[in-house]
Design a binder for these strands. Structure first.
Lengths: 235, 235
DNA sequence: TAGTGGTCTAGACCACTGA
DNA sequence: CAGTGGTCTAGACCACTAT
């Protein structure tokens, strides 16, 4: 059997995926080592390595030194959520974006927020509530606390025209964040702003963001009822 | 100024990230080309390439042939949600997993489901409702439709002991899927099974899965009230 | 200890694309 | 047309780990 040469990493990856999907290589089973595959495909080991490394990162293969490469028994599906700014989320779906500041105040946050911001109880922080609109309809409410210890310059910014998110992205480099998605019943005040019926179920996305100095901000986005987060899952 | 040699791709990546975060390389600005960086760091261009390629995949850099590499102006944050089986989700958090089949029937799905499954209106499909438990408390309700055209062997499986998800993962190779997260009010029946108060807000995760032959299954997981999806966001 | 994947190197050719 | 990133190659050494 004369297999034609496969000498691109994409080609190798496709062929490996095919063998896995057609169960020529079964879940849990070992596959040939890189050197052997390189010989079989007629390419360099580097090329095989790149193909297999990516599949391992996707969770489709499991690799260990010395013991070799196996087809993952229970591949863990991964959904990559892109978290755009609300502005680009609205504009990318063809809507007209609008922004309105509702309140802005320097005050001591409630204990749960102080905890999330990693500041002392009673210390002051900047609290911002704003409404995002799409095509003149309410889209989401942003309830944000900014840590004035790590981002002191926020004290001098009025966020009347621009969302704090965009300002922060440009001003303060962040290193990592945590996203927390949950369902909740819209508070009476939120219903007002969102024009939603009382007690409507809404999607909440809370995000805490860290920079080099510590927590930068904690924000809760409450979307209008009926909002969906849709994302592809790689196979 | 004698920069010490950086000759690992991780080292190059760290150094590049440092320069971006410290604004030595500003958002939107071009950075030196691969060959120059390789000379500066005292390593091979391949090494620089791997470091920069990964940063581009993460959305931190934007690369184009001929015009070079720039620091992304609006880096798009990405959250990688791992979608485990409910079993491992429960067990990994230290709980005791339980499963109970509620109903199993071959029947014609409602139009919306027939559409999602990509089968003709009136065609039969396998409908399964099951309850997942954690430590003897209800955890989530699974409402699943399986396409009997693409997965005919499901007709002969009773899903009394094992969740359909686990059976499908082992039996039918899938190629891609779409995830849809939303908030809803628990239906009266769901409240019964989940032991939840009426009208409680719940998180819904709907998933449609494709294999080589077309749609395999469409499943809606309704989590108990108070469920959170938590995920890191890479910076 | 030996076999596997992880990585680096130096060089090469190619594909794309802006000037 | 020329400069950039994208990729492949052949070879090498190393880190880890099952035996």
């Amino acid at each position: 059997m004369n297999t034609p040469e496969i000498n691109t990493w994409q080609g190798v990856q496709d062929e490996v995926l095919r063998r896995i999907r057609q169960r020529l290589w079964k879940p849990g089973a070992s596959i040939p080592n890189e050197a052997d595959l390189a010989v079989e495909f007629g390419c360099a080991r580097t090329t095989v390595n790149r193909a297999l490394r990516e599949l391992a990162e996707r969770g489709i293969l499991e690799r260990k030194r010395r013991s070799g490469t196996r087809v993952a028994l229970h591949p863990v599906a991964r959904a990559v959520l892109t978290i755009p700014t609300v502005r680009s989320e609205v504009e990318d779906s063809g809507g007209q974006y609008g922004y309105r500041l509702i309140t802005r105040a320097v005050m001591a946050p409630p204990p749960a927020i102080a905890d999330a911001l990693d500041v002392a109880q009673g210390a002051q922080a900047l609290h911002i509530v704003a409404l995002h609109r799409a095509d003149d309809a309410p889209y989401a409410i942003e309830d944000r606390w900014i840590n004035l210890t790590t981002v002191p310059q926020a004290r001098d910014v009025d966020f009347a025209a621009r969302s704090a998110n965009e300002w922060l992205l440009e001003t303060v480099p962040y290193e990592r964040a945590i996203l927390d998605i949950s369902a909740a019943t819209a508070a009476a005040q939120d219903c007002d702003h969102l024009g939603a019926p009382n007690q409507a179920p809404v999607l909440r996305m809370a995000r805490t963001t860290w920079g080099a100095q510590g927590v930068i901000t904690h924000v809760v986005l409450t979307h209008r009822p009926g909002h969906h987060i849709i994302s592809p899952i790689a196979g």
